[in-house]
Amino acid sequence: MNALVHFRYVSKRFGADFAVRDVNLEIERGKMTALIGPSGCGKSTILRLIVGLLTADTGEIQFDGEKIAAETIMKIRRRLGYVIQDGGLFPHLTARHNLTLQPRLFRKRCDEIEKRITELCELTKFPSSGLDRYPLELSGGQRQRVGLMRALMLSPELLLLDEPFAALDPLVRMNLQRDLKEICTRLQQTVLLVTHDLAEAAFLGDEIALMNEGQIVQRGLIADLRAKPANEFVREFISAQRGLVQL
């Protein structure tokens, strides 16, 4: 099996409503899978199930052959990197301390940590002079770069990105998207990206999974979705977004 994560008939309900319903999904190693769909379609829930912020009601999720459960989740989390909108940086810590927090608690050596920070600054094009600033002293794009660095500190096997660029202005977003693609290609990073922006998904994703009402409606390349939409929803979703791009 080449897939790093397996979802098998996973359902999660909030009250009477299904957030995800009988989802089967594989996230393949070394690829970026873009999970896309309208608001409330359940794409963020998929991501939160992997991190263990939620637990599935039924079905099973495996990470590298291991079932995600209360006993395993702490170990699995160390093998994940998680980036959210605006970076999720802790405002009371400088950029550097945001980066060193996790490796220090996991008892990494100081010189190793420093070496890793230098590497990542270069990789993410973050000026090392900004390392001793607090999050509120950084721009939105810089915060997002630090957020990405923090997620990559321990070389995670899976990078989870939850609408990472949604709050940024278009120019900054474009630069970041380009840099992210370059980084992930270089690292051969397995990525699960959640976005509602088809252009972003098309640009970054090796593969796209389109979700609606808690289920995966269609998977494939953007060209497949465009050429052979699985149903009326897919056609509408794609044409609506394409319409915006053409403006």
């Binding site: 702490m74 994940l80 909108q85 999720g88 802790f90 608690l105 923090r150």
Partner: peptide, 27 residues
Amino acid sequence: RPLRESAIALGLTAGQRLRKIFLPLAS
């Protein structure tokens, strides 16, 4: 919630989250 969840996702234990993140944020 995002900060809370970021702390969890980093793999910190409940005690570490409280000491290193939540109490300073609520200081």
